[in-house]
Design a binder for these strands. Structure first.
Length: 713
DNA sequence: CCGATGGGGCTTTTT
DNA sequence: GCCCCATCGG
């Protein structure tokens, strides 16, 4: 009998789900039921006995996606999905390294550094090496290290063509040593270490290659080159990789995603066929037509058009605003009208290219009394107070964790000044011991132990001793009080709201422990470590949750994978969307166009597009011109809501000398002295009109149009 | 030790 | 324009 979970699949979906064991590429358009295919395939494989749960490994892009996948599989199959390996690349690597920490050369309870921790660790290394932070910005160093690791390179393997690069390489090497000494691992290290483990250890490699008969990859277009290498290694000669992705939705190139992996995959794995899922179940016809038309301007595509069985729906509304404020006002009024029509606020999304754009929108919504929620900014486990609490927990787990010690040795304040900390660091360096050991020496000579370093040492020791045997939430609660963290924030006038987050941390720990429910094994021997790992790997969701009675504000990136009845895409101006910085990058505009494609395909029924003739940006007024993407949507699909474009002076032209000159952001120009460049900004009017040009040779320059002898290139 | 003050940066972001 | 950071002065 045919299982019910195969019902209602369309022919392409069914073909993908029931494919025999072979490598396959499923080109799944937006809203085409991609997750459904992936989860149904897993259920089908297990249900028909082709696969055991233990022979399945599925990689997702986010933890949230992994969780959802497990939930959906659980609903289809009466099995415990725990034997399955489902997670992000980082999560799976973590699992592998925990299970084989000895072979990987790691302590069993290694901690994971998030980006913040990593930066702090880098600053520490640089201080120890006496390297000037002005000359070598720590953020740059962080980028350098991560880029190298994400290419599979260790410090000694990185090219160093000049003195500067040599210094970067030195910091890299010292940083890795420091991490090893402290038993911590950064995100990139998780992947690299796991890859090295598998590539060097033949026995393990053979074991996992034969164990994971079925590899499934979600969001394949977002995998990096190194992740692809990792997959290939795990797949081995006989591996079957079921890859699902959409090259048109590849929007993470800036952090290493390489949609070219799709083409490479077809060749490397001799993929016999590509299945395209092109029926869209989300958007009305006109919206889909607009998306198809827009994305057809990209050259780097595998190529597919979406179609729908739905009717055309309503035209796309376009509003040309005078200013960002005017744009926000328009959006608020339209939101109110939608609400009148019965559209739930939670089904309305305001999307923008950059977070800074939310401010004007928030202000307008607030003034109008419309509830809204903004996504972005710090996530739960990244908040300062939560990080402080986690630092205490990390010290309980491992007092040698220098990063954690530095974070809280004087927080809440207990009379340990910068000088003292420096002395401890110096002593630790000289004797080659951890900060904790150095602090113990300093504090252990019968000194006054009511404050300062001795008090800190006693506190940490007491926390370890007293909380042993407690449940995780009990431990945290005790720690929050004994350390004085809760007291500190409760007493604070300005930061009292942080107490809530600390209480939330106790709840999070309780929920975590419950979910964990005695599942301790050789991979994760201890709940505290598991919780800390969870906190690092899954910093809390950035993405919206359904069902909230508030307008949803987020960047287009954050909206990926979501859908709404009504979507507003604002700030459709050259230089903003497409963003000016993308203009210098190879194929940058194509990625911006994919971003626009993602934005459009979020909408089910209503789509609003808008741009503003002027906008406050970086503290000054910038004049913009309508985005090229608006020209790429057939005008037959669009209903202009005002006539500003013709009735008012063209906004960009008004910003620069005379309406006839037509300089605009993104335009290529030549200057007699500076050579070739691209206009990246316009400011001022009339005689004061100036443009900012990024010249290929000399970099950015501001020029008064009145005097500069600019000509179009 | 904390609050005030000034300087620099400023696209997108998960792990 | 605003936010984050580092540094300084009380």
């Amino acid at each position: 009998m045919r299982p019910s979970y195969l019902d209602n699949l369309n022919p392409e979906q069914l073909a993908a789900v029931t494919l025999p064991r072979q490598s396959a590429l499923i080109l799944a358009g937006a809203g085409s039921g991609k997750t459904r295919v992936l989860t149904t395939r897993i259920a089908y494989l297990v249900h028909t006995g082709q696969a055991t749960p233990g022979s399945i490994l599925a990689v997702t892009f986010t933890n949230k996606a992994a969780k959802e996948m497990l939930t959906r599989i659980g609903a289809m199959l009466p099995i415990n999905p725990r034997g399955m390996w489902v997670g992000t690349f980082h999560g799976l690597c973590n699992r592998l390294l925990r299970a084989h920490h000895r072979e990987a050369g790691l302590p069993q309870l290694f901690q994971i550094l998030d980006a913040q921790d990593q930066l702090a660790a880098i600053k520490r290394v640089m201080k120890a090496l006496g390297i000037d932070e002005e000359k070598f910005p720590p953020k740059q160093v962080q980028y350098f290290i991560n880029t190298a690791k994400e290419q599979g390179l260790r410090a000694h393997e990185v090219d160093a063509p000049d003195g500067e690069a040599v210094t970067y390489r030195e910091i890299f090497a010292a940083y890795d040593q420091q991490c090893a000494r402290e038993g911590v691992v950064d995100f990139a290290e998780l992947l690299l270490r796991a890859w090295e483990l598998l590539s060097r250890n033949e026995v393990l490699r053979a074991h996992y290659q034969s164990r994971f008969k079925y590899l499934l990859v979600d969001e394949f277009q977002d995998t990096s080159e190194f992740q692809y290498r990792w997959l290939k290694l795990l797949a081995g000669r006989d591996g079957a990789v079921f890859a699902v992705g959409d090259d048109d939705q590849s929007i993470y190139g800036f952090r290493g995603a390489h949609s070219g992996n799709m083409q490479r995959f077809l060749a490397d794995f001799a993929v016999p066929q590509v299945i395209k899922l092109t029926q869209n179940y989300r958007s009305a016809g006109i919206i889909l037509d607009a998306a198809n038309a827009l994305i057809s301007h990209n050259r780097l595509r595998l190529g597919k058009d979406l179609w729908t069985a739905q009717g055309p729906g309503e035209p796309i509304r376009l509003y040309a605003a005078d200013s960002d404020q005017d744009e926000a006002q328009f959006i608020v009024e339209e939101v109110r009208a939608l609400r009148e029509e019965g559209v739930p606020l939670g089904q309305i999304a305001l999307l923008y290219r950059a977070n800074a754009q939310s401010r004007v929108l928030e202000h307008a919504l607030f003034s109008a009394g419309v509830p809204y929620r903004v996504y972005g900014g710090l996530r739960f486990f990244e908040r300062a107070e939560v990080k402080h609490a986690l630092a205490y927990l990390r010290l309980i787990a491992n007092p040698e964790d220098d990063n954690a010690l530095l974070r809280v040795i004087n927080f809440p304040a207990r009379g340990v000044g910068a000088r003292t900390v420096e002395q401890i660091q110096e002593a630790a360096r000289e004797q080659g011991i951890s900060l904790w050991q150095a602090a113990c020496h300093k504090g252990g000579k019968g000194k006054d132990s009511s404050k300062g370093v001795p008090a800190f040492v006693l506190l940490v020791e007491a926390l370890r001793r007293e909380t042993e045997g407690m449940t995780l939430p009990e431990r945290i609660e005790h720690m929050l009080h004994a350390s004085g963290l809760i007291g500190h924030y409760k007493a604070s006038k300005t930061e009292a709201d942080r107490v809530e987050n600390l209480e939330e941390l106790i709840h999070a720990a309780a929920a975590f422990e419950e979910e964990f429910d005695g599942e301790l094994n050789e991979e994760i021997p201890d709940v505290l470590t598991a919780f800390l790992t969870h906190a690092a790997l899954e910093a809390g969701e950035h993405q919206a949750e359904a069902g909230q009675e508030a307008v949803q504000l987020m960047t287009v990136h954050a909206a990926k994978g979501l859908e709404f009845d009504a979507v507003f895409i604002s700030g459709l101006e050259e230089g903003l969307f497409p963003h000016e910085n993308s203009l210098y990058e190879p194929d940058g505009v194509e990625e911006e166009r994919r971003l626009m494609y993602v934005a459009i395909t979020r909408a089910r029924e209503r789509l609003y597009l808008s741009y503003a003739g002027s906008r406050m940006l970086h503290g000054q007024v910038r004049y913009g011109v309508a985005s090229r993407f608006l020209d790429e949507i057939p005008s037959t699909l669009v209903q202009p809501l005002n006539v500003a474009v013709t009735a008012l002076p063209a906004p960009a032209a008004a910003g620069v000398r005379g309406a006839t000159e037509g300089w605009h952001i993104g335009q290529s120009v030549v200057h007699p002295k500076f050579g070739h460049g691209v206009i990246v900004g316009c400011a001022g009017r009339g005689a004061n009109a100036e443009v900012e040009v990024n010249f290929r040779q000399v970099g950015p320059k501001r020029l008064l149009l009145q005097y500069a002898k600019l000509s179009p290139a």
